[in-house]
Amino acid sequence: MTWALSAEFTAIRGAEQRVAELVRELTARVRAEPGNVAFNPHTLRDEPRRWFVYEVYRDEAAFREHLAAEYGATFNAALAPLVEGGGSRLTFLADPTSEA
């Protein structure tokens, strides 16, 4: 069963460009992970400082491999001082239409 989640964060004023650069770099790396199915970052149309990232991994093991990647920790450390609250909020998702 796939493993899906969303990550949400808001760039502090003046950090929008750097946050976008960090997300672009991370996106390329995550999409290259063998267990990644989707990694789709977006900003809100009316609030471009607010980010929403939709992520899907082949299964929980693939998600755990993603978490263990060193570049993820590097991204989170670089992102923390650039976003409100010091990090992203994760929401784990379930597909009620799939059979377990």
Results as ranks from 00 to 15, higher is better:
6 S>D: 11
6 S>Q: 08
6 S>K: 05
7 A>T: 15
7 A>E: 11
8 E>T: 13
8 E>V: 13
8 E>N: 10
8 E>Y: 03
9 F>C: 14
9 F>S: 08
9 F>P: 07
9 F>W: 10
9 F>V: 11
10 T>Q: 10
11 A>I: 12
11 A>M: 11
11 A>R: 11
11 A>G: 13
12 I>G: 04
12 I>E: 10
13 R>Y: 07
13 R>E: 15
14 G>P: 04
14 G>C: 04
14 G>K: 01
14 G>L: 06
14 G>T: 01
14 G>V: 02
15 A>G: 09
15 A>Y: 01
15 A>M: 04
16 E>P: 02
17 Q>A: 15
18 R>N: 07
18 R>D: 13
18 R>L: 11
19 V>Q: 08
20 A>N: 06
20 A>C: 06
20 A>E: 15
20 A>D: 15
21 E>P: 06
21 E>V: 11
21 E>S: 10
22 L>A: 12
23 V>T: 13
23 V>I: 15
23 V>S: 04
23 V>N: 05
24 R>S: 13
24 R>V: 12
25 E>C: 04
25 E>P: 02
26 L>P: 01
26 L>I: 06
27 T>G: 02
28 A>Y: 03
28 A>M: 03
28 A>Q: 14
28 A>G: 15
29 R>T: 02
30 V>K: 01
30 V>P: 00
31 R>W: 04
31 R>V: 11
31 R>K: 05
32 A>D: 14
32 A>K: 08
32 A>P: 10
33 E>G: 09
33 E>K: 05
33 E>C: 08
33 E>M: 07
34 P>Y: 05
34 P>G: 10
34 P>H: 11
34 P>W: 03
35 G>H: 11
35 G>N: 10
35 G>P: 10
35 G>R: 12
35 G>D: 13
36 N>Y: 06
36 N>G: 07
37 V>N: 04
37 V>H: 04
37 V>Q: 07
38 A>K: 08
38 A>R: 15
38 A>Y: 03
38 A>T: 12
39 F>A: 02
39 F>T: 02
40 N>P: 01
40 N>L: 15
41 P>T: 14
42 H>A: 13
43 T>D: 03
44 L>Q: 02
44 L>I: 00
44 L>A: 10
44 L>V: 01
46 D>I: 03
46 D>W: 06
46 D>M: 03
47 E>A: 15
47 E>P: 01
47 E>Y: 05
47 E>Q: 14
48 P>H: 00
49 R>S: 13
49 R>E: 02
50 R>P: 01
51 W>C: 01
51 W>D: 00
52 F>S: 08
52 F>Q: 13
52 F>E: 12
53 V>R: 00
53 V>M: 01
53 V>F: 01
53 V>E: 02
53 V>G: 01
54 Y>M: 08
54 Y>Q: 07
55 E>P: 00
55 E>M: 01
55 E>R: 00
55 E>A: 02
55 E>L: 00
55 E>G: 00
56 V>C: 09
56 V>W: 04
56 V>K: 07
56 V>R: 14
57 Y>L: 05
58 R>V: 06
58 R>A: 11
58 R>I: 06
59 D>F: 06
59 D>W: 09
60 E>L: 10
60 E>H: 14
61 A>T: 15
61 A>P: 08
61 A>W: 04
62 A>E: 13
62 A>M: 12
63 F>E: 03
64 R>Q: 14
